[in-house]
């Protein structure tokens, strides 16, 4: 009798547990997929969570140079208060930050952070105050022709006519635009990373920035006549290749003909 009772109670408990599990799963699925009726509150909560997550990431990866509260450390890293989300996205998504060591220039490398983590870092930096520039959402490609004119006037002096980059002083350089995404190009113009001048919206309007991006990206997509771009820096490497290979080939041919006769 006692045994029987125990068995029934166990059975009831098991059923209850299964039901509970099913309900929790269903509820979890619902909250995960159904649009929240209180989206405002949730996004505010998300922001808070995002800022908190960004703070944690900042304190792990950035604090040693940029200091507590991102106020900067003398001779190590500048204050990040007010630099804006665009700057964070540019520096972190291009892998320039975190910096492996202090040197002439931070170089592009694979990013150590996921897009979500970058967004969290950006949210944290934004939360510290200051109206920093942000990158607009949506399509960042504009009028290619206008972009070409603006590129040649404003960008080509350092980045080269075909965006291949070029040398600056003391080991610094203007990087090649080959790997830059639309958002990174936009952010770079807006924030002026490292030694690049800042091109604010009053000087180069958002539409003009999009035009420049369209031009810079279209150059990359174009095909090189003859097959090889050879650095795409124009007539100097092309002439060198023609000279070395062309004249070299002619020399070999001459030697061959002379040897045969």
């Amino acid at each position: 009798m006692k045994l029987l009772f125990d068995g029934k109670r166990k059975e009831r408990c098991r059923r209850f547990a299964v039901l509970l599990l099913a309900l929790v799963t269903l509820g979890g699925l619902y909250t995960a997929f159904a649009p929240g009726s209180t989206a405002q509150d949730e996004s505010a909560a998300d922001d808070a969570a995002s800022i908190q997550a960004g703070k944690v990431l900042f304190e792990q990866g950035c604090i040693s140079c940029h200091g507590r509260g991102a106020e900067g450390v003398t001779d190590r890293g500048p204050s990040l208060v007010g630099v804006g989300a665009a700057s964070v996205e540019f520096q972190v998504s291009t892998g320039r930050m975190p910096l492996p060591r202090q040197e002439a220039q931070a170089e592009r490398k694979p990013s150590s952070y996921s897009p979500d983590e970058i967004a969290a870092l950006a949210a944290y930096i934004e939360s510290l105050g200051g109206e920093g520039p942000t990158i607009p959402d949506g399509d960042l490609r504009g009028d290619v022709v206008l972009g070409g004119e603006l590129f040649r006037l404003n960008c080509a002096s350092c980045h080269g006519f075909s965006g291949g980059g070029g040398a600056l002083s003391d080991g610094k350089f203007a990087p090649s635009l080959a790997d830059a995404t639309d958002r990174q190009l936009y952010a770079a113009m807006q924030t002026g990373p490292e030694n690049m001048p800042k091109f604010g919206d009053n000087q180069i309007t958002p539409e003009e920035k999009k035009a420049i991006i369209a031009y810079a990206q279209s150059m990359k997509a174009d095909k090189d006549p003859g097959g090889a771009g050879i650095g795409r820096t124009g007539p100097v490497p092309e002439g060198l290749v023609v000279f070395l290979i062309g004249i070299g080939g002619l020399l070999v041919a001459t030697l061959w003909i002379a040897g045969k006769s």
Binding site: S157, C158, S169, N195
Partner: peptide, 21 residues
């Protein structure tokens, strides 16, 4: 030449032709 390579942190202007700073 147009000396217009401006380094906004080190405050130098560079000329691309013969590297004058």
């Amino acid at each position: 030449c147009p000396a217009s390579l401006y380094e906004q942190q080190t405050q130098r202007l560079l000329c691309p032709c013969h590297q004058s700073q």
